[in-house]
Design a protein around this nucleic acid. Structure first.
Lengths: 341, 341
DNA sequence: TTTAGCACTCACTGAGGGAGAGTGCTATTA
DNA sequence: TAATAGCACTCTCCCTCAGTGAGTGCTAAA
């Protein structure tokens, strides 16, 4: 792969990304003046095709990059395009607006990313590490209801209202509370489900406490947190890219957005360190073979957080989009650090 | 509008709904034998067109219903199509699977509706009436954090973790607790925002309690519940209807699903008693002029709940879809009654 | 009032042909 | 030996044109 071949490949990919049309030898020679004639370019193109970096939709059409070509491009040829300070400001102040509440902030990041890139944006928020149980408190609401509040040593809180089969006296409640507290303290919050409570109640029963009928009123994931979350935004941006004018392809792509876990899998598969570009069939999902993803991890409170990224057509404006994803992931990490709540 | 005109209109609409093609006089005469010749039908059609119930895409094409035609159809001609007992069972047991948790149950209803009708389904859950404050409790989590729990007389619960600027002694906390409790008891939960707390703290300050610096750590909608929620499902079903093969129309419709509040407005506009059918431009949203909606209110715990409905092309299978919406709204109301939590 | 007959309209389809873009090959040049 | 110019060839795209078929509206007859 000599220098000239690289230049030709680079020119073809740049042109194809901006026009969407197969690019011919004449255009390469003229627009990206490499100082040689179209004929020479043709020879180089012929070689590049043999090497698998470009392909022809049909004889007598220009060339367009293959997946391998894109791969080579993002790995070796592409120069990231820096954001202008205007863009950075726009993003920064846009995100600041929603800084108060985690969920809406994440949503905002997602919207911002989709809006500014004009691709679909995805955000994955992992299950939060909630630590060990620190405190359990029972608060009587009225004669029929009892509020169970559980707090972990990291400050994560869960609560649940349960119905009481009968009135419990304040002393009975506080006895139950200290029994449970003693029994469950320091246990992993993740393990806090009904089975564990059954055990705890069984132990209490051995001391004739007789609370076990309470169990009937708790369901299986008693205090289990929902955990993982996925946001996406701008799914419709796909409509504006001509490669998805075919309804079947469109359906393929959009169908993934119908189910959260699919989006999650998508992002999970691309996990890694730093910005990562996944091209076409490298996304191991048949429906996505016409797409590329650019994803980046982000941090929460200085620790590994989730993943944020965009999904667009393979013919994506990589240099700019990479910078956007990178910048927003960094902003997100910074803004989510040291703010509490 | 004599009987024969009605029959012709009915036939045209039925045929058009099932085929999507403009229907000609020959087809009406043959398939829906009215005992007259195509020529007679043609005369009737000519009249119906003059009356505005049907229209022609171009001369020499068959006729198709106008919005007015559909309106007349759903009001006067249509017979609801009963569900088979198989369908009822399928829905019933499908919904039962998710009965435990309100949110996922609503989501399930929505999915069920979209799946079984093959249109897009929408569910609106209104802000819950949460009643008056019954009990306020402060639970220290650690030296830096305080959990505020608020319970209404109807049993609705909200909580919030706040950071403390400094350590507070248990007695200080319980003093604060009883002060707030006394001050805020019986207040409408809806009004519970920061302004109210400022007042409460101000009152406390007059007695030199000095907790007002806590205020800096609360944000504006301190204990405000998010309230309204919107689910939708099966937006992609629209893709399978040929009237949306035009990307612009498709975009119009799908864009509404990008923002919750738009979906909410859509449903809100169609509120009423019983199943309601909204046709084409009756939906007062330009983007939706090619769609119809069938919506129904549902009940929560015997009281007015939210709205559930489907959105599809104007050429919708009304008789069946109405029954589906009706049945699911009824199931939903019944299953959401008398289960607590 | 209904029907049969008939001329007319219009969308759709497929064939045919020209234009244009681009290639591959070959012979020539530096 | 590498680069170039020339040229024939290929293939898509677009336009036109005629044929077909579905369906209508009108008129005259039953």
């Amino acid at each position: 792969m000599d220098e000239r071949k690289k230049s030709v490949l680079h020119a073809i990919i740049k042109d194809y990304i901006s026009t969407g049309e197969p690019v011919g030898s004449r255009v390469v020679a003229k627009k990206y003046d490499l100082g040689v004639s179209p004929a020479t370019i043709r020879n180089e193109m012929s070689d590049l095709e043999e090497l698998g970096y470009i392909e022809q939709p049909h004889t007598s059409a220009g060339r367009m990059p293959s997946e391998k070509g894109y791969r080579y491009y993002v790995d070796n040829l592409m120069e990231k395009e820096k954001l202008t300070s205007k863009e950075e400001e726009y993003i920064h102040y846009g995100l600041m607006e929603q800084i108060n509440e985690m969920d809406s902030f994440m949503r905002k990041c997602c919207q911002m990313l989709s809006k500014i890139t004009n691709y679909a944006a995805l955000v994955f928020i992992p299950r939060e590490e909630s630590g060990r149980l620190e405190k359990l408190q029972l608060i009587p609401v009225d004669n029929n209801q009892l509020l169970v509040v559980v707090i972990s040593h990291t400050g994560v809180l869960r609560h649940r209202l349960i119905r009481l089969p009968e009135r419990l006296s304040p002393t009975a409640i506080s006895r139950l509370e200290s029994m449970l507290q003693a029994r469950l303290k320091d246990i992993e919050m993740e393990k806090l489900d009904k089975n564990l409570l059954i055990e705890a109640f069984a132990a209490a029963n051995r001391r004739q406490e007789g609370f076990s009928h309470l169990l009937e009123f708790m369901d299986k994931n008693f205090l289990q947190q929902d955990g993982e979350k996925v946001f996406f935004s701008g799914a419709l941006n796909i409509l504006s890219h001509p490669e998805f004018k075919d309804p079947d392809k469109l359906r393929d792509v959009l169908s993934v957005f119908e189910e959260d876990f699919q989006v999650k899998n998508l992002l999970a598969a691309a996990e890694g360190k730093g910005v990562k570009i996944v091209i076409g069939s490298e996304i191991l999902k048949e429906e996505m073979k016409n797409c590329s993803m650019i994803v980046s991890p982000y941090e929460l409170e200085g620790e590994k957080g989730g993943t944020i990224g965009v999904l667009g057509p393979i013919r994506m404006s990589y240099p700019k989009t990479v910078s956007f994803v990178e910048y927003i992931a960094r902003e997100l990490s910074q803004l989510m650090t040291g703010r509490g709540s």
